[in-house]
Design a protein around this nucleic acid. Sequence first.
DNA 1: CCTGGCACTCCCAAAGAACGAGTGCCAAAG
DNA 2: CTTTGGCACTCGTTCTTTGGGAGTGCCAGG
Lengths: 348, 348
Amino acid sequence: MIAELSERDNQILQAVIEEFIATAEPVGSRNLTKKYALGVSPATVRNVMADLEELGLLTQPHTSAGRQPTDLAYRYYVDHLMGSRGVRPDERRRLRRHLAGASRDDVEELLDTTCRALSSMAHLVGLVAAPRFEARVFRHIDFVLLRPGRVLVVLVSESGAVYHRPVDAPEVDDQARLDRMGEYLNHLLEGLPLSAVRDRILAEMESERAAVDALFHRALTLGDRALRSADRSGDSGVFVGDPGPLLEQPEFHSPDRLKGILETFEKKGLLIKLLDRACAEPGVQVVIGRENPSEDLQGCSVVVSNYGSGDRVLGSLGVIGPTRMPYPRVVALVDYTARLLGETLGPG
Amino acid sequence: MIAELSERDNQILQAVIEEFIATAEPVGSRNLTKKYALGVSPATVRNVMADLEELGLLTQPHTSAGRQPTDLAYRYYVDHLMGSRGVRPDERRRLRRHLAGASRDDVEELLDTTCRALSSMAHLVGLVAAPRFEARVFRHIDFVLLRPGRVLVVLVSESGAVYHRPVDAPEVDDQARLDRMGEYLNHLLEGLPLSAVRDRILAEMESERAAVDALFHRALTLGDRALRSADRSGDSGVFVGDPGPLLEQPEFHSPDRLKGILETFEKKGLLIKLLDRACAEPGVQVVIGRENPSEDLQGCSVVVSNYGSGDRVLGSLGVIGPTRMPYPRVVALVDYTARLLGETLGPG
DNA sequence: CCTGGCACTCCCAAAGAACGAGTGCCAAAG
DNA sequence: CTTTGGCACTCGTTCTTTGGGAGTGCCAGG
């Protein structure tokens, strides 16, 4: 497709897209020549536009209206036209100031703050996925007896994140025993990445089988069970920003539209799926309109990036908004925020 | 005011309110006589309506439109007219089924589920405030060394709720010492209500002053510091339902209106303030329109109740929606849900 | 191949007309 | 004195009409 477009086509396409992003109104040929120094007449622009429409890059909402970009055009724009810009110094400062309030040791607070910062800076809805469970490093485990047969497992990662989950533990009714079990596991698992913890437990169970220490065996079983259920505890761990800014965009004035999106925000599962895409590949990913998995997100784009320290991918963050969003600014912002969060979490 | 209204006035006022709640349209005299067996002619209804308008109970959006209730009228309706009805058996079943999915031991999950249930059943936005910190009973404390000088304090309540907070602890750099400190505190505080924990700690510090055991002293200090900061951790602990149902109400079709409300939902502080009203008095509280503290909540009513077990007030829950909401149904629902949640949390 | 001109299309906003729901008031009936 | 039916009037809503404007497509000339 790139080959098919001449320099002038590109120029006009870019102008149409950027004008539409700015105004939210279909763009006419006459108007375009006035605002952009294209060096050609409206008639020529019309011809080019007609070509671009044939290629599926532009549409007119009705005959004799201006043109507006299709999802395909946005894709092309993001991939080939917009280039990349940095984050303006004053924006950097604003972002840093936003994040300065959060403690480095309270991961939840930090992520929440980051999410709010993203929302406010992009004027879109921020999304932040907490570091993936397995990407973290074991620090401490603790068993608390809730009532006979029911134990709360509290797991702390190196960066200070806390997971907790009640699990069934028949025949356990003594906190002292639980304390010893915890002690044992703490020594066993010290410093292990959580991704390796379960394997370690299983391996230990294997070797421990001969030595019939019931206590240790039970500790291992309990640890295993807790981790198994912690794996699927992805429901939490997604932060979604204030949807307010969306309301200012004309594309969300229809209640139905809005309803769908707000409902999507509640279903955290889908958001996680969206954010997970970013974990797979490095750099900022842009998902545009129909490329989205959900019906309700038609007309929305998602800009995401993973974050981490060094080459360890921890989690991902991004924003969601109308397809008609200022991609260069947003992409730069997401990229920068991801780096910043990675750095903040890194050394811990 | 009650004395000033005759039986017929009451009847007509009630009819107007209920009709308006049902249709969201200003109610005309002719229409009213057709749908409700008032036994009087439209002209009479008009006269009564004019009186009610003079009393500030009804307004017309413009001359020659029907009447609609003012906030004052809703207040009067809630206090004197609507009576109280129970929750229909099928609704009870639905609610129970909703809540059945949540584990009794995972308080957060339980509250979240309750919030969703409220939203879905009332077709409004559910609100649930987690049990107040002080209302809980101490079960377990744990200190985890994050890095030298920085300690994560994990606190578990009897009902399985987990609080955690990083605190500064200069000169602490040894997990083993922290373990012993935790052990000491666990014994000291076992079974105490959290409201009494700090006093206990302070008392102990006093008596311990002579016996200069540095370890215990430091444990007490650390516990004190953690509790002090946990007190203000009320930011979290509020669950807000899906705002989707609001979009179906015509009063929220205006983006500005909606924006204000969504922003209010993000500011958890205000919601806590609203919910706290319920803690003060028993039974269901209704806050109508302008009675609300926030500008943005004009046109909204909040129905809240506290929940707890026995006479111990734990927290509060409720719903928020347009002033034009079916109060009898909603009040009954909130009441019943609060009882249910109280029972569920009670025995644990 | 670009350009200016021209006819045509279609949306949109304003203006007017018809409609209907509702009110207020009044005089007559109960 | 209260209730009621009648009647004139108000005012929002809806429908239609009309004109303007923005934009297009096409064509013929440079």
